[in-house]
Simulated assay, not measured.
Amino acid sequence: MKTVKFNKTECGVDFLINVINGADVALEYLLPSVHNADYFEILIFRSGNGQLLLDNKLLQIEDNTILFVSTFQRKKWNVALSALDFTILIFQEDFLNEFFTDKLFTYRLLYFYQHDYPLILHPTHEQIQSIYNILAEIKSELVQPNLDSAHIIRSLIYYLLQRLNREYALQNNLPFQIDTSNHAYEFKRLMESHIKEAKRINDYCKLLGISRITLNAAVKKQFNLTATELLKQRLLTEIKNELIYSDKTISEVAYEFGYAGPNHLMRFFKNQTRMTTSEFLAAYQKGIN
């Protein structure tokens, strides 16, 4: 699988962030084969026609659509290039975390590392135009930087990301208050790197150095889910991706995730989806064809 990498030299910018006119890079970025990237993407479509297969979910691209893609998410595009008018905001995680002096910044945004709700927004035409204006300001500072450009970019990107976070929360009826303890965000961060070997809440409590009660209270307050529910969501997404994108057998996938045998994995999968793994794969193939 191809991994597209962020390249400052090719992008012609000094920061690990860029605003790109979609018409200039459509063939390079909207690949019809399965691929991923080492950066985050927010794609803003004024005009759109097609679909994005993102991990195991199919997203419809229409006029006035915003898509959110996290690092290394598997994706595959099926779009009418001639019908597209869009702009892409891309950035690497380290850029945001260092830019805002917050290693958990990307985990505070509801649309990144999201495994339950669709990674899409449908704003109005006026909202889209407002976002385009902000992106134009950011781009201007990137291509012609001044001594104060970093401060201006920081304020613009922070405002834009938080504004989108609010809209995403409202669209999906999600809480978006700040977790001052950071336990909920640390839990999300740890799941991204440990999900295959750590499948129990107690594993994460040990990593965080807190009690199960403390973790569950923080996650419930921030995401309106129990810690167990959030962990099961993340685990299910990872298993689905392995089933779809790898050539491994069920036994091999079960072994990779530390299950005692394939029956244990299949029982978990059936409990979460009400489908067997075979039924899921059949429905997936039917949905994308």
Score class of each variant (00 low, 15 high):
143 V>L: 15
145 P>D: 02
146 N>C: 11
147 L>M: 11
148 D>V: 14
150 A>W: 10
151 H>R: 14
152 I>M: 12
153 I>N: 03
155 S>N: 15
156 L>K: 13
162 Q>R: 15
165 N>D: 07
166 R>K: 14
170 L>I: 12
172 N>F: 11
172 N>H: 13
174 L>H: 05
178 I>D: 13
181 S>H: 06
183 H>T: 08
185 Y>E: 04
186 E>Q: 15
192 E>Y: 12
194 H>L: 08
197 E>P: 11
199 K>N: 12
202 N>D: 14
202 N>A: 14
204 Y>W: 04
207 L>F: 10
210 I>E: 06
213 I>R: 14
216 N>I: 00
216 N>G: 04
217 A>L: 09
218 A>E: 05
222 Q>I: 04
227 A>Q: 02
227 A>S: 09
228 T>M: 10
229 E>G: 05
230 L>Y: 05
236 L>F: 01
236 L>E: 00
241 N>A: 02
241 N>L: 04
242 E>G: 07
244 I>Y: 01
244 I>V: 06
245 Y>N: 03
247 D>M: 08
247 D>K: 15
249 T>K: 07
250 I>E: 06
255 Y>G: 09
258 G>I: 04
259 Y>H: 09
259 Y>Q: 06
262 P>Q: 09
263 N>A: 10
264 H>A: 14
272 Q>I: 06
272 Q>N: 10
